[in-house]
Amino acid sequence: MKILVTVKRVTDYERKVKISPDGLSLVTEGMNFVPNPFDEIAVEEALRLQKAHGGEVVVISIGHKDASKEIRQALAMGADRGIHVIAEELDPDAVARLLMKIVEEEKPELVIMGKQATDDDANQAGQLLAGYLGWPQATFASKVEGLDSEAEKAQTPGVVIAGGEATVIREIDGGLETLKLKLPAIVTTDLRLNHPRFASLPGIMKAKKKPIKEVPVASFGVDITPKVRNVKYAEPPARKAGVKVADVAELVNKLKTEAKVI
């Protein structure tokens, strides 16, 4: 089975991004970039499904020319080949419509994407793609077995494929929901789906020879004018500085008499 996986290059989520003095842009120079963590989970799930069912795992990144590094990293984990659409930062809608073109050409049975990117936190691209294609979707894929379980150690996929359908367990408000999707379908990953593997040294060596097709964004003939434009950036309001209390008695006293919350 052919699986497409998307990988976005994002600023390191351990570091705070700075805002330019005029508030019109984010300062990313000098920042470290990493693959979006949810996308690494997507790559891992695809590799597990490939092991169980055969086929091919194709990694797509749409973005900066340096995103080839993030594609290469997915190839080092074990994916077969990459497609790199070189573009400036796009809105999720443009990304989804570009992905639709790639899906139409590649004809995968499953597309696995991260539920959100840790930079713009939009949580849209997978659902948009599913909407444009008219495919079934299961967002926030998880599993019942925990990340400490035997199933996880054995690298068992959380998504179950059988009889042309994918069974997906979803993390939603109030519990876990199970859906069955007719393939082809879109799945987006949540944190508890798996622990992504690290690339092995032989994996890294092999990845150097794996093909990455570079495609300029203009060649798709897709209108990428943003439907959502970021016009300004600002720091969130800071919380006023707090105090350290000496002991439990002082804490209880402050909560009762100062904060008046108990």
Partner: peptide
């Protein structure tokens, strides 16, 4: 922007050809 809202609204935006602001 509950789990359900996050799941269904972007898909709706695609059907409407609309842009969406999240959260």
């Amino acid at each position: 922007a509950t789990a359900q809202g996050k799941d269904v609204l972007p898909r709706t935006a695609a059907l409407l050809g609309a842009g969406m602001a999240s959260d």
